[in-house]
Amino acid sequence: MTKNTDKPAAPQRPLPTIDNSNRPFWDGARAGELRMQKCCGCGHIRYPISDLCPQCLSGEFEWQRLSGRGKVFSTIVFHQVYHAAFAGEVPYNVSLIQLDEGPRMFSNVVGVPPSEVKVGDAVEPVFDPVTEDVTLPRFRIARAG
């Protein structure tokens, strides 16, 4: 048997596979912008990222910068560690965000204790670099005014 004296590698958090289909989203996040696809056929702004508009099936779209503002649609707090990379992060917030421009996305509301986030809270985006290449769009409670 080979004796392994190396420490096990720290578990890596899931990272996006960036390719042509999603690069504008991740480039946008690195530039501090939330970008999503807007259908050239019917104007529907969609998420998750997809080749066809799920409303009208048009394949024509353009990437549009969104305000990133929205409201907390639902909010939960993870205490259980389902992925080893999050062992040091529990308890952490995951919220379903209703964006002002229409789409919904899962993300994290940060900057307040995770259980204090409430459904209906107004939020705005923050851009959190988690690696050199990947910046995650997250949200914080919107500042008044």
Partner: peptide, 19 residues
């Protein structure tokens, strides 16, 4: 398992059936 295709919801720590 994290739901979502491609870039799954696990990017934001959203894992499992309970969630």
């Amino acid at each position: 398992r994290a739901s979502g295709w491609g870039d799954s919801w696990g990017l934001w720590g959203m894992f499992g059936a309970a969630a």
